[in-house]
């Protein structure tokens, strides 16, 4: 145990990959985590940070029929979330509702609102409309991109439009632009691709290999961060997609996931298979399109790595900031350990 480590731990019992911040819960800092166990009954944990901020406790424990590969909490209703699951042979996705709890914790069944059935391809991830109450969803499977229209009360979801990614591209995930709701970025093996939701057509493509994760800057237009296997972390300005505006070294092994802090400018969190979480500070000069002078500026010489959290036993696949308390993040390592940490000591330095 390192002295710096101030993390609060929570065990999930099984291996797990995904954790999501419950954005719609404005009263508590809560996270949803789903397990990934081949043989056992999988579970979805609703974890809440105690108001004192020193303890994590389980608010709800629900059984889920299959391995959970992706889990996203609905941005407008804290009781609704989506999962992508696999039963070994095939992948599926569904929207779930947490039943009313009445104080009991004995694994009640989740209410399935609807399944998002697509004809072909392995579904990889679900994207919710970035902010506010809206009925649109996007599902990304390895071959195509679908826009869904969800009706919670009628418990139906319908495909509105879809577009195929093309033969050579296998999509793996994506992000919905919070500034321009008509634009969606999807990651695939050899590039980062952008769709216009209205026409469902590809608009832009950035060449970069093995992108694992992408995240939009929550405050600034056109800024995007990607995590790649080999090249670490890159920050892009979509107005000049040829070269990244900044590159960060990433992790010793694969960089798996990367997230912009929702509140503090330039604070980036990344997690990787080398069992560490890195906190970065990137200087993003928004609107300044002259990159020539940047490499010389002294700001670049400052080590962008603010801190490394290495108190993990296994690879980390799940990572999320809390939107309620933006200095808090939760990370989930493969061995099922949720760790909540505060980055306050590093931000206040700035």
């Amino acid at each position: 145990m390192q002295a710096v480590s101030s993390g609060i731990g929570y065990g999930l019992k099984y291996q797990a990959r995904c954790i999501s911040d419950v954005k719609a819960d404005t009263d508590h800092t809560s996270f949803l985590a789903g397990t990934l166990s081949l043989k056992e009954e999988n579970e979805v944990h609703l974890i809440r940070l105690s108001s004192s901020g020193t303890e994590l406790f389980c608010e709800g424990l629900f059984s889920h029929p299959n391995e959970i590969w992706d889990l996203v909490s609905c941005p407008f209703d804290q009781r609704i979330f989506s999962t992508v699951y696999s039963n070994g042979e095939s992948y599926g996705a569904a929207i779930w509702q947490i039943p009313e709890l009445y104080g009991e914790l004995n694994s009640p069944q989740l209410e399935r609102i609807t399944s998002l059935e697509t004809k072909s391809g392995k579904i990889k991830s679900i994207l919710w409309w970035p902010t506010g109450r809206h009925d649109k969803l996007i599902s990304i499977n390895d071959e195509s991109l679908c826009l869904w229209s969800l009706d919670v009360s009628k418990k139906t979801a319908q495909v509105q439009s879809q577009d195929s990614a093309g033969m050579l591209h296998k999509l793996s995930g994506g992000a919905w632009d919070p500034h321009d709701v008509n634009s969606v970025a999807a990651t695939c093996e050899s590039s980062l691709q952008f769709w216009d939701v209205r026409t469902m057509k590809k608009t832009l493509s950035i060449e970069c290999s093995h992108v694992r994760s992408a995240d939009y800057h929550p405050r600034k237009n056109n800024i995007l961060v990607t995590a790649e296997h080999e090249s670490g972390i890159r920050i892009w300005d979509l107005r000049k997609p040829k070269v990244p505006i900044q590159e960060l070294p990433g992790h010793t092994h694969w960089t798996w996931i990367v997230k912009f802090n929702p509140e503090y400018d330039g604070i980036i969190l990344s997690a990787g298979t080398d069992s560490t979480v890195n906190l970065w500070s990137a200087s993003i000069n928004h609107g300044e399109l002259t990159t020539e002078s940047q490499p010389e500026s002294p700001a670049r010489l400052v080590d962008p790595l603010l801190n490394t959290y290495s108190d993990y036993e296994d690879s980390i696949y799940g990572l999320t900031w809390s939107s309620r308390e933006p200095w808090i993040f939760a990370s989930l390592s493969y061995d099922g350990r949720v760790v909540v940490e505060s980055v306050k000591p590093f931000i206040s330095k700035k």
């Binding site: 081949l38 391995e67 696999s86 070994g88 042979e89 010793t252 092994h253 694969w254 298979t273 080398d274 690879s315 493969y334």
Partner: peptide
Amino acid sequence: LCLKSLQEFVRLQT
């Protein structure tokens, strides 16, 4: 590094 990669690839499959 290679073994780690191997491990990760294995984990990604069922």
